[in-house]
Simulated scan of single mutants.
Amino acid sequence: MKDKNNNIVWFDGFVKREDRNRVYGHKSGVVWFTGLPSSGKSTIAHTLEKVLFEKGIKVYVFDGDNIRHGLNSDLGFSSEDRKENLRRIAEVAKLFVDAGLIVLCAFVSPHKKDREFIKQIIGREDFIEVYMKCPVEVCEKRDPKGMYKKAREGLIKEYTGISAPYEEPENPDLIIESHKISIEKAVQEIYNYLKIKGWF
């Protein structure tokens, strides 16, 4: 790790987040989807993005696999790499919030301490945690990418839900039991929550 450069100073731009929120007509913040692989995080996040976008809301999805194709392509799945993966995502998401967007982040993020770390970076007032609660048996049956099967065969090490633990959120803002309700109802529930919170 290189020594931290103490000669870097944050530059405050002439257009503030408040200005963007006013012009865009909605608040900005992060909706963080956590849950087991195949619990529905990405599906719900992308569907919600489409609903919000069609209503003129500035929104973008950060998806676990997509981020690892580029920004975090150098990271593996050890505890240290998972934490760094989430740190980078949180820092970029925070910039998007400053840019006036609602950011939908879909990441397994299995460790409580890492999720708390993310909240601290982004800021609790700008952070909504959605726990996609779904039994591992159901997730394994869905398994669109065949990852659970590979994990069962020992081809993937430290796979959450099989060979690595998932720590359930203790006090998430929302719990979506994705095995019990439709995608449309799940999206509507989150949409309603954001509206109640005054995000738009």
Rank of each mutant, 00 (worst) to 15 (best):
F62I: 11
D65I: 06
N66Y: 08
N66L: 12
I67T: 00
G70R: 13
L75Y: 07
G76Q: 11
G76P: 01
F77K: 06
D81N: 11
K83R: 12
E84V: 08
A90G: 01
A90Q: 03
A90P: 00
E91Y: 12
A93D: 00
L95Q: 06
V97Q: 02
D98Q: 14
A99K: 10
L104W: 07
C105W: 00
C105M: 13
C105Y: 00
F107L: 15
S109L: 08
K112D: 01
K112L: 14
K113G: 02
R115G: 01
E116N: 15
I118W: 02
I121S: 04
E125M: 07
V130A: 03
Y131E: 01
M132A: 14
K133N: 13
C134T: 15
P135E: 06
P135Y: 10
E137S: 14
C139T: 05
R142E: 01
D143F: 09
P144I: 08
P144K: 11
K145W: 06
G146S: 06
G146L: 13
Y148G: 05
A151W: 10
A151H: 08
R152K: 14
E158S: 15
T160S: 04
T160I: 10
G161L: 08
S163L: 09
A164M: 03
P165G: 06
Y166D: 00
E170K: 15
E170L: 15
P172V: 12
L174W: 02
I176F: 02
E177F: 03
S178F: 04
H179K: 08
S182P: 07
K185Y: 05
A186Q: 06
Q188H: 08
L194Q: 02
K195H: 02
K195F: 03
W199A: 02
F200V: 09
